[in-house]
């Protein structure tokens, strides 16, 4: 059933979109590949499971999980960005990788490495169009992802804060001279990015009903690929890239086998990097200039 696979691919892509947007925000505005995002994604997924298991009313549980993710992202900002400006470009990358390992192993110590089943508080509902089956939570997460991206675009283009963020992306020093309080904006970027990643992790836990300490890695690697394929720092590029990768992944399994997924996804990434490093929709000006 090809149509069904395409639908599944788009739904999976919705999760990648959220993670890719989280990556593209820090790289577009702060010029920093934030490797702690898989950790934030995982923390939120794990906390969704923990809170639901503890019997917390489900809307509170998902809010709590997202809060934990955003807080973790803020912690990363406190310990990396303040020290990164004067050093080599890979130093913040390295300390954010340190945070990924830290988060994963703290969860490992606390809850073990087993795959945990998330029991949903509501019965799984499916929509049926002719022979197509669409799960409502998955559809909601795709719609939510697109809405949030539209919201983010409006925030960046129309508001005072968005103007300040774009100024920082253009040139942090000049923005500071012109009166933008950079030290107050940077945490905002991390919190917004953390919210996107945390939302992705929470939705992943609800949609696929399983969590474990390393669940963030594979999703985040695909998210990074989605970001590059669409165009680094370009929010709509992340949407296109995320959906594209979701579909490619599902089609690779459909036509070949599961072992073939990485080959096609990362092969595409490699080809894009060789032929058009700015991605399908073009990277934002800041990234293009600096690299």
């Amino acid at each position: 059933m090809l149509e069904q696979q395409l639908v599944n691919g788009l739904m999976l892509g919705g999760i990648y979109v959220l993670v890719a947007v989280a990556f593209t925000l820090t790289i577009g505005i702060l010029n920093f590949l934030n490797f702690s995002i898989p950790g934030v994604f995982m923390l939120s997924g794990i906390f969704t499971w923990v809170l639901l298991k503890a019997g917390v009313y489900w809307p509170l549980a998902i809010l709590g999980a997202i809060f934990v993710g955003a807080a973790a992202s803020l912690l990363v900002e406190r310990c990396t960005y303040s020290w990164m400006r004067s050093s080599d470009h890979y130093v913040p990358l390295v300390s954010s990788m340190g945070f990924l390992i830290l988060f994963e192993n703290l969860v490992l110590v606390q809850w073990g490495s087993d795959l945990q089943r998330v029991v949903l508080p509501f019965s799984d509902l499916n929509l049926r169009f002719a022979s197509l089956v669409i799960s409502i939570p998955q559809l909601l997460s795709l719609v939510l992802a697109i809405c949030l991206v539209v919201g983010l675009r409006i925030l960046l283009q129309r508001t005072q804060m968005g103007r300040a963020l774009r100024a920082v992306a253009e040139n942090a020093t000049t923005a500071e001279i012109l009166g933008v309080v950079v030290s107050r904006l940077v945490p905002t970027v991390f919190i917004i990015g953390g919210l996107f990643a945390a939302l992705g992790g929470m939705l992943f836990a609800l949609n696929y009903q399983q969590v474990h300490p390393f669940m963030g890695e594979e999703v985040a690697l695909k998210g990074i690929s989605a970001m590059v394929i669409g165009g680094m720092g370009n929010v709509w590029g992340s949407v296109l890239g995320g959906l594209l990768i979701g579909v490619i992944e599902v089609l690779s399994i459909h036509f070949f086998n599961a072992d073939f997924v990485d080959f096609s996804v990362y092969g595409l990434l490699l080809v894009i990097l060789f032929l058009k490093p700015t991605g399908l929709l073009g990277a934002s000006g800041i990234v293009r200039e600096k690299f």
Binding site: H89, L93, I224, S225, V228, L269, L273, F274, P277, F291
Partner: peptide, 12 residues
């Protein structure tokens, strides 16, 4: 590729 793009290309 250069900088972060190089790191990503080697990753891929």
């Amino acid at each position: 590729t250069k900088g972060i793009y190089l790191a990503l290309a080697t990753f891929a």
